[in-house]
Amino acid sequence: MDTNDETSAGPRLLGPADVRQLAARLGLRPTKTLGQNFVVDANTVRRIVRVSGVGPQDVVAEVGPGLGSLTLALLPHVRHVTAVEVDAALASALPETVTEYAPSSAPRLDVVHADALRMGPLPGPEPTALVANLPYNVAVPVLLHTLELLPSLERALVMVQKEVADRLAAAPGSRTYGVPSVKAAWYGTVDSAGAVARSVFWPVPNVDSGLVLLRRHEPPPGDRREVFAVVDAAFAQRRKTLRAALSGWAGSAPAAEAVLHAAGIDPRARGEQLNVRDFARIAAARAAIG
């Protein structure tokens, strides 16, 4: 098996044979609906743990642990892991898998059966890091919801579809810059952290994957919901100037122009030229004008 012995070279990690055996034991057939593509390569999960920068004092939130490939790699390096899994069968099986493969780490794992998009505060110690292979069909909303729900998070390392990774890490003015870029930047500095081959998954997905690292910082001044409303409006019609794109949000094109001038933003600019602090200034200017 493509695993290690916990008593010698560290924890036993899941290889292709282990993943298929665990799936067969559960009668599991991965579903596209839940975005289930399981990592079967031990070197990949080791790399994710290394790039995440987590250490002995960290409490890690993991969303979508699946069969436990990444969970097993995380547990020896951190203080605690709280895993959130929407699939009831997977959620109930994960503690058993950890007990089998890494028995000394089992007491430091909590498993929460919940939809990550609807989860509330997590039990146990406050998480300091999010490390996850996110379900690709809901990766961005799950990431944003988790960052908002858990203000204790200092950083996040997530694996997502490469196209989404490019968008999250995009800078203003680039072709891929858009709503995910700005909203992620509200919470932290976002950087691409490398590509991941399709061959490390079972089943093999039809898309490439990438790692994204977010280092948390204080958000800009202002109300997040108001700022995000400006962002959504600005990118709903990318080709239009901000004066036109924000006309519905502001009430009219002249009203949008007045708000933009008050914020020190050229009304002829387009959304992809602005950073998150620019959008925060626009929201604040509208609130000040009333």
Results as ranks from 00 to 15, higher is better:
Asp232Lys: 03
Ala102Pro: 02
Gly264Met: 13
Asp223Trp: 13
Pro56Glu: 12
Pro254Arg: 13
Ser92Glu: 14
Gln57Pro: 12
Val39Gln: 01
His80Met: 05
Asp110Trp: 04
Val259Glu: 00
Ala229Leu: 07
Arg12Tyr: 15
Val200Phe: 13
Gly66Ser: 15
Glu272Asp: 09
Asp266Gly: 08
Pro219Cys: 03
Ala269Gly: 10
Asp87Ala: 12
Ser8Glu: 13
Ala197Lys: 14
Ala171Cys: 05
Val98His: 04
Ser105Val: 09
Arg216Leu: 02
Pro172Ile: 00
Asp5His: 13
Pro127Thr: 09
Arg167Asn: 00
Val60Met: 05
Leu75Pro: 14
Glu163Arg: 14
Val131Asn: 01
Arg20Val: 06
Glu218Thr: 11
Ile48Gly: 07
Pro125Arg: 09
Ser247Tyr: 06
Val131Ser: 01
Thr189Phe: 14
Val231Tyr: 06
Pro11Ser: 08
Ala262Tyr: 02
Ala156Ile: 10
Arg47Ser: 12
Ala269Met: 10
Thr176Arg: 14
Met119Glu: 04
Leu109Val: 05
Ala169Asp: 03
Glu218Met: 14
Gly178Pro: 01
Val39Trp: 00
Ser247Phe: 09
Arg167Pro: 00
Ala156Cys: 15
Gln237Gly: 07
Asn43Gly: 14
Ile282His: 02
Ala269Asp: 09
Pro30Phe: 10
Ala234Trp: 13
Asp166Val: 11
Val196Glu: 07
Val158Lys: 01
Thr241Arg: 03
Leu214Gly: 02
Leu22Lys: 08
Glu272Ala: 00
Val164Arg: 02
Arg286Ala: 12
Ala106Pro: 08
Gly178Phe: 00
Arg50Lys: 15
Ala114Gly: 03
Glu96Pro: 04
Gly194Lys: 08
Ala171Pro: 04
Phe38Val: 08
Leu74Gln: 01
Arg29Gln: 13
Leu74Cys: 05
His217Trp: 07
Ala288His: 14
Trp249Gly: 06
Gln161Tyr: 09
Glu226Tyr: 13
Val204Glu: 13
Ala9Lys: 10
Ile265Met: 03
Val230Phe: 02
Arg47Tyr: 11
Val200Cys: 11
Val63Trp: 06
Leu75Met: 10
Tyr101Cys: 01
Glu257Leu: 03
Arg167His: 00
Gly188Cys: 05
Ala263Ser: 05
Tyr101Asp: 01
Pro11Val: 01
Gly124Lys: 04
Ala258Met: 12
Gly53Asn: 14
Gln273Val: 08
Leu22Asn: 07
